[in-house]
């Protein structure tokens, strides 16, 4: 197992370097001068030229790339042109909010999607299955921004049950930073008021983000269950008298989840990307809005760092998915 994980990790490094090369070239192909963004609206050409010199933007692109890779190797991602703060610091402050939202969405998708998928598989071609199929199609088809506004109108504006936006109420102070994750920090520091308030703020964005993934998980689980139910071992175990719930929720489900687990891995990347829209609508202080701002202001250091980070997170999740596959079906690990 350890060798398997190490081999996967070793493969990640060249992938990330490739990602860095492609992103670096693409960003430099855009005719935008970061010195202009850094200098601000009222800057003179002399001020802009000075910044270009100061940040090495006048050097050849290969030289800029070599300097950048050297810095990244030391975990120095440079300075944001618009916040004038170290990019690493900005990301460290924002990433936990994005991860909290992503994990919450994933958790909702899995906890609701898998049982619904199993139910659809067991009741295939009956009305619950038809209903769930409609739901799956709608879940994938509905635009996140529309769904988000509908949830806001219903739960925040009309019923007044949940907050409209943000991560925490304006009147509450944030708990002291321990991990950077608001909910975890609230628990660790005993700030139960912040925990309850944070959880309520998390619900609407998490449900919005979960919808697409939930629909996908329902479809893949249903299909996996249907396939597994055709296997001889199911007939055998039924014949020897296994109790049906035990047979379904342990043996059938375990053999049905391979494709679902792959999808969960893919979904994770999709959720981080999809989070950009959801974060904007709910004013969620994650990396989504930070990235959009960086794109609009031509902030290269941020764009590079965020791309690399998302690539690294995606790679890590894929390794976890591979490990999960191995645990579900040890034959896969042996083959790998």
């Amino acid at each position: 197992m350890l060798r398997f994980v190490l081999r996967r990790c070793a493969l990640v490094l060249p992938s990330l370097l490739g990602l860095l090369v492609v992103t670096f070239l693409l960003i430099h192909a855009v005719p935008s001068d970061p010195a202009v963004a850094m200098a601000g609206d009222a800057a003179t050409p002399e001020q802009i030229a000075q910044l270009r010199l100061q940040y090495g933007l006048d050097r050849p692109i290969w030289e800029q790339f070599a300097v950048y890779v050297g810095k990244v190797a030391r975990f120095d991602f440079g300075e944001s042109a618009f916040s004038h703060r170290p990019v690493a610091l900005d990301i460290v402050q924002r990433l936990p909010a994005t991860l909290e939202l992503t994990f919450a969405s994933l958790l909702l998708s899995v906890l609701i999607g898998v049982p619904l998928g199993v139910a659809a598989g067991l009741k295939h071609n009956t009305w619950p299955d038809h209903l769930l199929r409609i739901f799956s199609v709608l879940g994938v088809a509905i635009a996140a921004f529309w769904f988000a506004i509908m949830l806001q109108l219903l739960f925040a504006m009309n019923l007044g049950w949940l907050p409209l936006r943000g991560e925490l109420s304006a009147t509450l102070s944030k708990p002291p930073v321990v991990t950077g994750f608001l909910l975890l920090d609230s628990i660790v520091t005993g700030r139960w008021d912040a925990f309850a308030d944070g959880l309520r703020h998390l619900l609407l964005p998490a449900v919005t983000l979960a919808l697409g993934g939930l629909a996908t998980i329902v479809r893949f689980t249903r299909s996996g269950v249907l396939d597994t139910l055709q296997n001889d071992f199911v007939f055998y175990e039924r014949a020897v008298g296994y109790r049906w719930p035990r047979l379904v929720w342990i043996y059938v489900l375990r053999n049905s989840l391979t494709a679902t687990v792959t999808q969960i891995g893919l979904l994770f990347g999709g959720l981080i990307a999809g989070g950009v829209v959801v974060e904007a609508i709910f004013d969620w202080p994650g990396i989504g809005s930070y990235t959009v701002q960086a794109i609009l202001t031509g902030d290269r250091q941020v764009m590079l760092a965020v791309t690399l980070l998302v690539g690294a997170v995606y790679a890590a999740v894929n390794i976890l998915v591979d490990v999960a596959h191995g645990l579900l079906d040890p034959r896969l690990m042996e083959r790998a």
């Binding site: 806001q152 504006m157 007044g160 409209l164 304006a170 009147t171 004013d283």
Partner: peptide
């Protein structure tokens, strides 16, 4: 003073209308 800028017009208007 709590600065809580909103990015989307729809959220901005809703936040004003529900008093937050």
């Amino acid at each position: 003073i709590a600065y809580r800028p909103t990015k989307e017009t729809s959220t901005r208007v809703l936040a004003l209308l529900n008093g937050t």
